[in-house]
């Protein structure tokens, strides 16, 4: 089955981009808390729940907003949409915060608001809520972005189940080292308008 990449988005500590075109740059080298807020404002998304998310979820959420910009996700058939992502450091940043809250018995304050984010798949849960996505969502923990694996898996998913869309790519967060690269995949329309989905799909990232 021929698949195509309808859109793609990237966020790194330097910039946020849509289909390879820069949306905003982090010229002041601001930390993620600030830079993510500036992207959020730039995208003009009315979604206050954003501010409750942990960093990994914020990162995936913003990359999701960009990659799905042209799609009316309020009215698509979410059952036919899957999310298949790679990630390296799981929820380590939130894990660290939760750990700080219980390691000292004299200062013991575990918080549900932090604990619920100590799983790497929660970022996909947030994307699902925001965009009414009800298909499979899986996160594979990889030493590095394994495009060949994700390509094979997504390709099979389309062939084995009747999916219409899949968001695939990479989202990983450490405080000083984060990146998200999301790709929206669809069955090829045969019009050559979009790049085809191949095992080299991550070469689109610049």
């Amino acid at each position: 089955m021929n698949l195509e990449i309808i859109s793609y988005s990237s966020i790194t500590s330097h910039s946020a981009s849509s289909n390879g075109e820069t949306i905003t740059e982090n010229l002041t080298d601001a930390p993620f808390a600030e830079f993510s807020k500036s992207i959020y404002k730039k995208l003009e998304v009315p979604y206050p729940k954003f501010f409750k998310m942990d960093e990994l979820s914020k990162l995936a959420f913003l990359a999701g907003e960009i990659v799905l910009k042209e799609i009316d996700t309020a009215n698509w058939n979410g059952e036919k949409v899957a999310i298949i992502l790679g990630n390296k450091n799981s929820s380590l940043s939130s894990d660290q915060k939760h750990y700080e809250s219980f390691k000292d018995r004299d200062n013991y304050f575990p918080s549900p608001a932090i604990f619920v984010y100590t799983l790497p798949n929660i970022m996909m849960g947030e994307l699902c809520i925001r965009h009414k996505i009800k298909g499979e969502n899986s996160v594979f923990i990889q030493e590095k972005f394994d495009a060949q694996f994700l390509y094979d898996y997504v390709q099979h998913l389309f062939e084995a189940e009747a999916y219409e869309y899949c968001i695939t790519g990479w989202a990983d967060y450490l405080p000083n080292n984060y990146e998200a690269h999301l790709f929206l995949i669809r069955k090829s329309s045969g019009e050559d308008k979009h790049p085809s989905f191949s095992e080299n799909f991550k070469q689109l990232i610049r």
Binding site: I122, M124, C128, I129, N137, S138
Partner: peptide, 11 residues
């Protein structure tokens, strides 16, 4: 088998 998401709440 099959997998799905509620698209409802994270916890």
């Amino acid at each position: 088998g099959g997998q799905s998401n509620d698209a409802n709440h994270i916890s």
